[in-house]
């Protein structure tokens, strides 16, 4: 069921992540890889928002990435879509890992913290594999840069999510729990 609150969550997530995505690409570029960043700070925001609000948070991250990459003239629609789909897949992967492990995003128990420690690097790796394999198949990058891309996404995305996402989950989940849009009900 789509209602205004869900659309608002997506819009706010997208609005919040858009400048972060844009300047993450500008500030920490990876030579040889189009529209890539070695420290993907918006992931630190849309991961928690996805763990709180589900697919609507992930959709916000997807829109932000799509628009941020669109800023750079000369990149093809494929590059925009590829990265944006990768940034949709990553938080959804983390969400699925939390579901499979029966964990919750408040990180107050060992099980929840373990899920977070597993979900973030796995989701970052899945994102890196998706983005750079598609880039390679479309001839956007050369094979040596596939390894560079996957490794930097794995490390750079994971670092950003751990540094920004962890305090956000720890400090805000107790408030978000009171929202009817919070997707976890015991």
């Amino acid at each position: 069921m789509v209602d205004a609150r869900r659309i608002a969550v997506t819009a706010v997530t997208a609005g919040l992540c858009l400048p972060l995505a844009l300047f993450a690409i500008v500030l920490v570029p990876i030579p040889g890889l189009p529209a890539a960043s070695g420290f993907w700070i918006p992931a630190g925001f849309y991961f928690p928002l996805t763990l709180w609000f589900g697919v609507w948070g992930a959709l916000g991250g997807h829109i932000a990435t799509f628009l941020a990459m669109g800023y750079f003239q000369g990149f093809t629609l494929h590059v925009w879509l590829d990265g944006a789909i990768g940034d949709f897949i990553a938080p959804i992967t983390a969400l699925l890992i939390f579901k499979l492990m029966g964990a919750r995003p408040d990180l107050d128990q060992k099980k929840n913290r373990n899920a977070w420690l597993i979900a973030v690097p796995v989701a970052s790796l899945v994102c890196g594999l998706w983005v750079h394999t598609v880039n390679l198949l479309f001839g956007v990058i050369t094979p040596p840069f596939w390894w560079v891309g996957v490794t930097t996404y794995f490390i750079g995305d994971s670092l950003a999510v751990f540094i920004v996402g962890t305090p956000l989950l720890r400090s805000l989940t107790k408030f978000v729990k009171q929202s009817p849009m919070y997707i976890w009900r015991d």
């Binding site: 706010v12 919040l16 400048p19 972060l20 300047f23 993450a24 500008v26 500030l27 700070i41 925001f45 928002l49 920004v164 956000l168 400090s171 805000l172 408030f175 978000v176 009171q178 929202s179």
Partner: peptide, 25 residues
């Protein structure tokens, strides 16, 4: 107030990064 509080804190974290990005550039 719940949503204002949540998104205010998210915006604060976001603006800190933008300032860091500005200085970095």
């Amino acid at each position: 107030l719940l949503y204002i509080h949540i998104f205010k804190l998210l915006c604060e974290m976001s603006v800190i990064w933008l300032i860091v990005a500005f200085i970095g550039q």
